[in-house]
Write a protein that binds this DNA or RNA. Structure first.
Lengths: 151, 151
DNA sequence: TTGCGTGCAAAGGTTTTGCATGGCA
DNA sequence: TGCCATGCAAAACCTTTGCACGCAA
């Protein structure tokens, strides 16, 4: 029942940007800036309209990143692949790690048996630092004079 | 180093409302409506200003509830008691369970060793159904004609 | 040619800010 | 009396909407 879609330069760029940003969440502003960088000016309304369409189609997800307090959009590679496990999110690079391993079952069982809590994976996120970013933070810690980004 | 605070009727009501709503998140609008119900008219700016102060003081937490897409505020009983463990949040009653048990260490170790991920408890939330609400949901499922609340 | 996509302008909602006034301690 | 808190109005932001036009298929 999907209506016919037309291809336009702006849409191609936007979708491309979202795809390549798979492990990083982007804001509507980021998209606008990206288009600017590519010398393509697209009206904000157009961006929002397209983003909403993509959301409706399930191609992307929209939610608020509470760390930055902004609405972010995230490309969904395969929605069905993201069920049954929770996500680890790096607070520094916004990268996402899918906790797709046997430990998921251990978590689920523990919560069920010890806390009578039925885990729902959707929306459940654990924050922290990924391997790469931790190393960078450690480097930064060694250089006291360096400008460090703080919360 | 906290500056002197003056007590006013509006502030007392707002804080009281937040305290009594401990397991339920409230929006700025809810607060405004609550004050109206108590025949106290407080300007929106005042509400926001006070909420931001409470956030800075760590008395409440501010974040966006992605289910309703609105900014919500939540009373923090004792911030220091909430470090070192993650939270389980019931999607139905918004109640919070503190995962303060030995399993926390297991989680931390697994993420560290298998995923090279340094867990940061702050903000990490697992969603699901608490014992009480699951039973209610099960009851509702047995009564097909009953009005059921859905997502 | 059809109707989707776009730009523009305006509106809507939420939150912040400057300034003068009011009120607690 | 000294500040903090408040009200008011305006602004800042983000997002949506209506309308007319452009353009892909």
């Amino acid at each position: 029942m999907d209506r016919r879609k037309y291809h336009t330069k702006g849409r191609a760029l936007i979708l491309g940007f979202l795809e390549q940003s798979q492990s990083v969440t982007v804001t509507a502003k980021d998209i606008w800036a990206f288009l600017q960088d590519h010398d393509v000016t697209v009206n904000r309304s157009t961006i929002y309209r397209y983003l909403n369409q993509l959301c409706d189609d399930g191609a992307i997800m929209k939610y608020t990143d509470n760390d930055i307090g902004k609405t972010v959009y995230e490309y969904v590679k395969d929605k069905h692949d993201c069920q049954g496990h929770i996500h680890l999110k790096c607070v520094r690079c916004n990268g996402i790690i899918h906790l797709e391993c046997g430990f998921m079952e251990e978590i689920r069982e523990h919560l069920e048996e010890s806390h009578h809590f039925s885990l729902q994976c959707e929306g459940s996120v654990l924050y922290g630092l990924c391997d790469h970013c931790r190393k960078i933070e450690e480097q930064a810690a060694k250089m006291p004079n360096e400008e460090r980004h703080s919360v």
